[in-house]
C-alpha cells in the first residue's frame, strides 16, 4: 500500500487522458525523486494554466489577454475566418503557414448522442462576427468525420444566405506519396473533391 500523499498523486494522474495506473505510478515516483523546486514549478505550471488563461473574447482561442495574438496581429486578414472545433486545431493550421486570416473556435461539433446541439457551440457568436468584422469568406476546418461534416453542412445552410462565401477544406492525398499506397477512403474523398486545372 502506497503512502497517502503518493496514492493521492497516482489517483489524480490516472484521471488524465492517456494515462493508465502504471504510467501514473511511474510519474508519481519520478516526481517523488525530483527537487522540491522542480515539483513546485510543475505544480505552478498546472495552476497557472488555469488561473492565467481565458478564452479570446473574439475567436475563443486560449489567450492570456482579452484578445488572442491572432486577433490582434496587424498582418492577418480580418475578412478571412477559419472555423475549427477546438483551440488545439488552430496550432495544426498555423503549422502549415498557409493561412493568414483569423480563427473561430466552435468548442466542439454537433453530436446529438452527446447532447451537443448548435446552441452548445459558438455559432451565434460566429454569425455576430460577420457584419461587425466585415467577414468575406469562412473556411470550415472541422474534423473530417460524421460530426464534423454535419457541423460544416449546418454552418453552410446558415451562412450561405447571408451572401458570405463559405468553403470546406479539401480531403485528399498526402503530398509526395504514391497513389498506389493511398488508403481507399482518402483516395475516394480526393476524387470527390477533385478540381479543374486553372486555365
Amino acid at each position: 500500500m502506497l503512502a497517502g500523499p503518493v496514492q493521492d498523486l497516482v489517483e489524480e494522474l490516472t484521471r488524465l487522458p492517456g494515462i493508465g495506473p502504471k504510467t501514473a505510478q511511474r510519474l508519481a515516483f519520478h516526481i517523488l525523486k525530483v527537487d522540491t523546486a522542480d515539483a513546485r514549478r510543475l505544480a505552478g505550471a498546472i495552476v497557472g494554466v488555469k488561473e492565467k488563461t481565458r478564452f479570446c473574447a473574439r475567436c475563443f482561442n486560449i489567450s492570456t489577454t482579452e484578445l488572442c495574438g491572432y486577433c490582434t496581429a496587424d498582418r492577418r486578414d480580418p475578412t478571412l475566418v477559419c472555423v475549427v472545433e477546438e483551440a488545439r486545431d488552430i496550432e495544426a493550421v498555423e503549422k502549415t503557414g498557409e493561412f493568414k486570416g483569423r480563427y473561430h473556435v466552435l468548442g466542439g461539433a454537433i453530436s446529438p448522442i452527446d447532447g451537443v446541439g448548435p446552441d452548445d457551440l459558438r455559432i451565434a457568436e460566429l454569425l455576430a462576427r460577420i457584419p461587425s468584422e466585415g467577414i468575406a469568406e469562412i473556411i470550415v476546418a472541422t474534423n473530417p468525420n460524421v460530426e464534423g461534416e454535419a457541423t460544416g453542412m449546418y454552418l453552410a445552410r446558415l451562412i450561405s444566405p447571408l451572401g458570405v462565401k463559405i468553403t470546406r477544406i479539401a480531403s485528399g492525398l498526402p503530398v509526395g506519396g504514391d497513389l498506389e499506397y493511398a488508403d481507399e477512403v482518402t483516395l475516394g474523398r480526393a476524387f470527390e473533391g477533385r478540381r479543374e486545372f486553372p486555365h
Binding site: I110, D119, A150, Y154, R157
Partner: peptide, 15 residues
C-alpha cells in the same frame, strides 16, 4: 423534449 434540437435535422437527413 426540446424543440431547438430540431434545427439540425435537415443536416442529419442529408448525411
Amino acid at each position: 423534449t426540446s424543440h431547438r434540437a430540431l434545427a439540425t435535422l435537415d443536416v442529419w437527413d442529408e448525411s
